[in-house]
Amino acid sequence: MERLRNDIIQCKLPPGSKITEGALCDLYGFSKAPVRTALFKLSQEGLVRTVPRHGYVIAPITIKSVQDLFELRLVLEPALARMAVGKIDIDELKNLNVAPGSSKAEQAEMKFLAANRQFHLAIARASGNQKMLALMTQLLDDMAKLLHVGLFSSDWRAGSMLEVHRDQAQQHEDLITALERGDTEAAAEAAKLHVQESRDLVMKALLSQSSVTVGRVALA
């Protein structure tokens, strides 16, 4: 049921929407047993919530949940950067930190998400801490949902995404430079600044009155 998981992360099943086992069986062509198992796993990951006697709901996005997400990233990612010093494959990071191209908007968005995810996971893996890697993986799934409902609205597609890509690439480059020098404190600081910039960008998009997120995000 990886398709179900991806559809939730990509907001093809919108945050806050109600779902039932029967509806998912019809949609994906599976019997109830694997659907029930998938929903149980997704509830453990925080992607769906169980509603007694009513089925399930796709986990909604709230301003509080976004704030919580970035607070956790601000604790986790500087620590991962410190731990990755001297262990990380610098060439791998450089290859993942590709400059934005001129591909179509949808293609650029998907390329951005995939490369950004692998960049952060590479640092988490280099830390050698499997628990922190698992947590980082979950946080990146949550980030993907935010990007789909926030940054990838029609207003952002009008041209802002290219600027976002460039800013992210430069922030990644600063982190790569610190890691390559073996400077643990500079790496941690670069990771912290990157998360803060991402937080400000996402919050601006989510709070924008013209954003597609209106109706999908609870402003509470």
Results as ranks from 00 to 15, higher is better:
Glu163Lys: 12
Ala191Tyr: 12
Glu163Asn: 13
Glu173Thr: 15
Ala169Asn: 08
His165Ala: 05
Gly128Leu: 03
Asp142Ala: 14
Ala190Tyr: 11
Gly182Gln: 03
Ala186Leu: 06
Ala126Asn: 01
Ser211Met: 02
Gln130Lys: 06
Thr177Val: 14
Glu189Asn: 12
Gln196Pro: 00
Ile176Thr: 06
Lys204Arg: 14
Ala188Val: 13
Leu139Trp: 11
Asp174Trp: 15
Asn129Gly: 00
Ala187Phe: 05
Arg166Leu: 13
Ala191Arg: 06
Glu163Leu: 13
His165Val: 00
Glu180Arg: 02
His172Thr: 01
Leu139Gln: 09
Gly128Ile: 10
Val202Ser: 00
Thr213Val: 12
Ser154Arg: 14
Glu197Cys: 01
Leu139Val: 13
Lys145Cys: 10
Ala178Trp: 04
Leu175Asp: 03
Glu189Tyr: 09
Met161Glu: 11
Val149Lys: 03
Glu189Ala: 11
Lys204Asp: 05
Gln170Cys: 08
Ala169Cys: 09
Thr184Asn: 08
Ala144Cys: 09
Leu133Tyr: 14
Gln171Val: 02
Arg125Leu: 07
Leu219Ile: 15
Leu135Asp: 00
Ala187Arg: 03
Ala178Val: 08
Val202Cys: 02
Ala178Pro: 05
Gly128Met: 00
Leu133Glu: 10
Ser210Asn: 06
Asn129Ala: 01
Phe152Thr: 04
Ala178Lys: 04
Ile176Arg: 02
His194Cys: 01
Leu139Lys: 10
Ala158Asn: 09
Gln170Trp: 10
Ala169Phe: 14
Val164Thr: 10
Leu146Tyr: 12
Lys131Trp: 08
Met203His: 00
Ala158Tyr: 14
Glu189Trp: 09
Ala169Glu: 09
Ser127Thr: 08
Lys145His: 06
Ser211Leu: 02
Gly215Ala: 04
Arg125Pro: 02
Val202Met: 07
Leu179Asp: 03
Ser154Val: 15
Leu201Cys: 02
Val212Cys: 07
